[in-house]
Design a protein around this nucleic acid. Structure first.
Lengths: 224, 224
DNA sequence: CGAAGAACTGAACAACTATTCACGGCGGAA
DNA sequence: TTCCGCCGTGAATAGTTGTTCAGTTCTTCG
C-alpha cells in the first residue's frame, strides 16, 4: 500500500470532526436544534455537505453525539458542584442551582438539547442523557433522605419533576424574557432552587441557607 | 343570485369543520402532533385533502385551533375543580391535581399539545394557551398567599415551574411507563400534587389533607 | 516524480408533505 | 326544470432537506 494515515492526518481528521461538532453546537446555541441542518453546519465548519457524511453516518448520529457531549459536560459540572458541598442537603442544593445556572447561560442550546422537537432517531440518545442527569439528582435526593434531612419519597419521580420545573421556569416559552440580566438571573436561580428544595421537603428556614450557599460557588461554573 | 347558504348547509359545513378538528385531535391523541398531517386527517374525516383547505387556511391554523380547543377544555376543568374547593389552598390543590389527571388520561395528546415540536407558526397559539393556564394557576397561588396560607413569592414563576414539574414527571419521556394502571396513576397524581404544593410552601401536614381532598373529586373530571 | 488510494466536493437525487387548482357535481332559487 | 355558483375532489405542484456519488484534489511512499 502506498498510502498510510500519518499522525498528522489523523490529527487533522480529528480536528475536522470536532469542527463539525462545534459548528453544530454553535448553530444549536444560536437558533435551536432546527438550525442544525447539514448544509448550514457544513458551511460553518468550512466543509462540503458530503464531507459531514464522512464523519457522521447520518444527521441523527451527529445530533446524538452533540447531545451526549453537552450532557456529559453538564453532568460533570453537577457532580463537581455537589461533591464540593459539605452535606447531602447542600449537595442537592448545589446540584439544582448548577443546572439552573447552566441552563440559563445557554438558553437556546438548553432548549434544543432538552425539549425541542427532534427526529425520532435521536430521541433515544436524548433520553439516555436526560436519564443520567435525572439519576444523578435522584441520587442526591436519596442521600438527603437517608441522612434524615428529607421525608421518604419516590426519588426518581421527584428528580424528574425538579428538572421539569427548572427547565420550564427558566428556558421554556413562558420563562421571563429578561433573564440575561445577571441580577435577574441570580434572582431566578434562587427562586427556582428554593422552590425545588421545598418540593422535596426541605424546611423553609434551612432552605434559605442552602440556597445562598449553593448559588455562590456554583456561579463560578458558568464559564465551564 | 341563485345560490344562498341555507340553514341546513350551514349546519353541514359546521359539522364537517368539527369532523376535521376531531380527526386532527384523534390523530394527535393516537400518535402525537407529528401525525397531524393533512392527508391522514382528511382520510379520518372522510374528506379529500383539498377540502381541509376550505375550512382551514393552513395546517398551522388547524393545529392552532386544535390546541386552543384542548386548552379551553382544560382551563374550564381547572376552574370547575378549583371553584368547587372550600378554600384557596384546596382550590390550588384541586387545580394542580386536575391538570395532573387530565394530562395522564391523554398522555400522547398532552405531549403533543404541550411539548412536541411544531411548526413555528403554531408556537404563538400554543404559547397563548399555555399562558392562560399558567395564569390561572398563578391566580390560585396568589389567592392562597393573600389568605396567608403560603409565603409571598413570584407566583408566575412558581406556576410555570409547577406546570413544568407536572408535565415532565407525568408525560415527559422520563415519566414512568406504567401510568395507565389506575392505581399507579392515582399514586403518581398524589405524589406530584404533594410535590407541587410543598414547592410553593404548603406545610407538610396540611398538604396531605389537601391532596386527598383534591384528588377524589377531580377524578370525576377524567371523562369530561 | 508518479502511482495508489484516501479525503473532499457539490450538484443531483430522493423522500416527504403542505398547498394549489381545474374540474365534476350537488344545492338552491326562479 | 334549469341555471348559477359554491362545495368537494385528488392528482399535480412546489419547497424543503437529508443523502448519495462520480469526479477532483490531496497525501503518502517507492
Amino acid at each position: 500500500m502506498v498510502y498510510r494515515r500519518t499522525h498528522q492526518v489523523v490529527k487533522r481528521l480529528a480536528a475536522r470532526r470536532s469542527a463539525i461538532l462545534a459548528a453544530a453546537r454553535d448553530a444549536a446555541a444560536e437558533a435551536g436544534m432546527s438550525a442544525v441542518q447539514i448544509a448550514p453546519v457544513a458551511v460553518r465548519a468550512n466543509v462540503a455537505a458530503g464531507t459531514v457524511y464522512r464523519y457522521f453516518p447520518s444527521k441523527a448520529d451527529l445530533i446524538s453525539e452533540l447531545i451526549a457531549d453537552v450532557s456529559r459536560d453538564e453532568l460533570a459540572a453537577i457532580r463537581r458542584a455537589a461533591d464540593a458541598a459539605p452535606g447531602p442537603s447542600s449537595a442537592l442544593a448545589a446540584a439544582v442551582s448548577t443546572v439552573a445556572i447552566h441552563v440559563l447561560s445557554q438558553r437556546k442550546l438548553a432548549w434544543g438539547i432538552l425539549a425541542e422537537p427532534v427526529d425520532v432517531d435521536v430521541a433515544a440518545s436524548r433520553l439516555a442523557s436526560r436519564r443520567e442527569i435525572a439519576d444523578e439528582i435522584a441520587g442526591r435526593i436519596d442521600a438527603a433522605v437517608k441522612a434524615g434531612h428529607l421525608p421518604a419519597q419516590d426519588t426518581r419521580l421527584a428528580a424528574t419533576a425538579l428538572l421539569g420545573a427548572l427547565h420550564e421556569a427558566l428556558v421554556g416559552p413562558l420563562a421571563p424574557d429578561n433573564l440575561d440580566d445577571p441580577a435577574r438571573m441570580r434572582d431566578a436561580v434562587q427562586m427556582v432552587t428554593l422552590l425545588a428544595l421545598r418540593a422535596v421537603g426541605v424546611m423553609d428556614a434551612r432552605a434559605r441557607g442552602l440556597v445562598v450557599q449553593a448559588v455562590l460557588p456554583a456561579k463560578t461554573l458558568v464559564g465551564a
